[in-house]
């Protein structure tokens, strides 16, 4: 059986000297303004950041950003949608979705990424297959760097989770940056305190 053959070969060949696993510092810098840094890095990465003081205004903000939006999908109850996500059997049906609105967090100041887990999307493919993605992020849920982000989440808690740091992009043709490769063409981040709005 190849499993035992591989494990045996590793056991024979691995270095004899012990190599202790290092502890990982958090590298946090107390003075940093995480919100400002987050907005700056997210925008550099091609995301749009919009501050919203009342989460009930999200619908208005959506229609300002994309007045001609087609089908809107969201697992969030306070968003007006055109599609009942619970009724979707085959995820390929979501190809028609123009705009998806989901919650995410924590957000990471050093790179503009936001953690989104399966529970936030209802369908794993939703944040990728939609044409435009909107993520609601609570500013209180912004951390400085990836070390702190991984401290906050448990990656195995759900079957799937992803850090998203901007719109789908590619530079595979002569290093020219093009947004809208295979997945969502744009990422808009709504910064809003939403702890009790679901």
């Amino acid at each position: 059986m190849s499993r035992s053959a591989i494990i045996d070969a590793i056991r024979r060949n691995k270095p004899a000297a012990p190599a202790p696993l290092p502890g990982i510092p958090v590298f946090a810098n107390d003075g940093a303004d995480m919100l400002e840094t987050f907005i700056a890095t997210a925008e550099t990465g091609g995301s749009q950041v919009i501050r919203i003081s009342d989460s009930r205004d999200i619908g208005t903000a959506l229609s300002i950003r994309f007045p001609d939006a087609g089908i809107i999908a969201s697992p969030l109850l306070f968003i007006d949608t055109h599609i009942n996500l619970e009724a979707v059997q085959n995820p390929a049906e979501l190809e028609q979705v123009d705009i998806a609105v989901i919650r995410g967090g924590p957000g990471v100041a050093e790179n503009g990424a936001i953690w989104i887990s399966e529970a936030d999307c209802m369908h794993r493919v939703l944040p990728f297959i939609c044409q435009h993605l909107f993520v609601l992020l609570d500013p209180a849920g912004i951390v400085q760097n990836m070390h702190q982000a991984y401290e906050r989440i448990r990656i195995e808690k759900q079957g799937f989770g992803v850090f998203i740091a901007g719109p789908s992009k590619t530079a595979d043709i002569e290093q020219s940056l093009v947004t809208g490769a295979q997945a969502a063409r744009s990422l808009t981040i709504f910064l809003t305190a939403f702890s009790d709005s679901k």
Binding site: T41, G45, V108, E110, N111, G112, A113, R124, F128, N145, M146, H147, I155, E156, Q158, G159, F160, G161, V162, F163, I164, A165, G166, P167, S168, K169, A171, A183
Partner: peptide
């Protein structure tokens, strides 16, 4: 923190996907 900065000079790849269980 190291991978994308070293690879393409981005602060992180756009998608960092964690797969643990099938749907």
């Amino acid at each position: 923190r190291l991978l994308a900065r070293s690879a393409t000079g981005q602060p992180v790849t756009i998608y960092t996907s964690h797969y643990h269980r099938p749907g």
